[in-house]
Amino acid sequence: MLWAAVGAVVASAAWAVAFLALDAGKDDADLRGYTAAANLCGKADHSSFDDEYPDDSGSPTHNSLKDTALDQSYCSLNLKKTTSSYADAYLTLQLDLHKRTDPGPEFRAVWKKYGDLHDGYDVDTVDGIGDEAYLVSQDTTGDTTSGSRYATLAVRDGWMTWTMTYSSYLTSYDEDKDPPELDEVTDWLKTDTESTLEALRD
């Protein structure tokens, strides 16, 4: 009976420590005033892409999550040139508010070392956006008639993390509908990320 009682006390103490740690994490969450919009597509700025893709293909897709541990907003857009019948490129955006744990170490591991797990991608550090930001890109078009262009800007600002991803596929293009160069795309991602994050602060 004594060992059972001791075991119960230890278990209760461990549970209390875990509960207090979670509660402390909530109090210490460094959210920098960001909110997770119910409709991120309605709040996000993607105007830098408008000259290249003035039309959209179908309705944007969006969803959101509210939880004691995590708030999340997601948006997916199909981008289309005026001469196209179908989407020519895709834009996805996601904001996460980590309310229990600091996402910094895992964010850095995923994005700074993205090339260690995925072959053929370039990873560059981006200064001046949030606490840290990384640009991951890949261009497989070369001189061929097929391939893709891809770029993700990943940002961490306190316990908020953000990704904005562009992708296009050369097989969907005629000669007069070449996709923009990656340098252009990455500039657009930076510009629209900064304006969107500003809009998502209280």
Rank of each mutant, 00 (worst) to 15 (best):
L2H: 11
A5K: 15
A5F: 14
S12P: 01
A13P: 09
A16P: 09
D23R: 07
D27L: 11
D28G: 00
D28L: 12
D30Q: 14
R32G: 00
Y34F: 08
A36R: 00
N39M: 13
G42C: 04
K43L: 04
D45K: 02
D55S: 03
D55A: 01
D56C: 00
D56L: 03
P60N: 06
H62C: 10
D67L: 08
D67F: 07
A69E: 04
L70F: 03
S73G: 11
S73H: 01
Y74K: 13
T83K: 07
S85Y: 14
Y86Q: 14
A87E: 12
L93C: 06
L97H: 05
R100W: 07
R100K: 10
D102L: 06
P103N: 09
G104A: 12
G104R: 07
P105G: 03
P105F: 11
F107L: 13
F107K: 06
A109W: 15
V110H: 15
W111L: 13
K113F: 15
Y114L: 11
D119L: 09
D119P: 01
Y121H: 09
D122C: 12
V126F: 06
G128L: 14
G130E: 08
A133Q: 01
S137T: 10
S137M: 13
D139Y: 04
D143A: 06
D143T: 05
T145I: 01
T145P: 13
S146T: 02
G147T: 01
R149E: 10
L153N: 05
A154S: 10
W159G: 01
T161A: 03
L170I: 04
T171S: 14
Y173N: 08
P180S: 15
P180I: 12
E181L: 12
E184Y: 11
V185L: 14
T186W: 12
D187C: 07
L189S: 03
L189T: 00
K190C: 07
T191N: 13
E194P: 02
S195K: 00
T196F: 00
E198M: 03
A199W: 04
A199C: 04
A199K: 13
A199D: 06
L200F: 00
D202N: 05
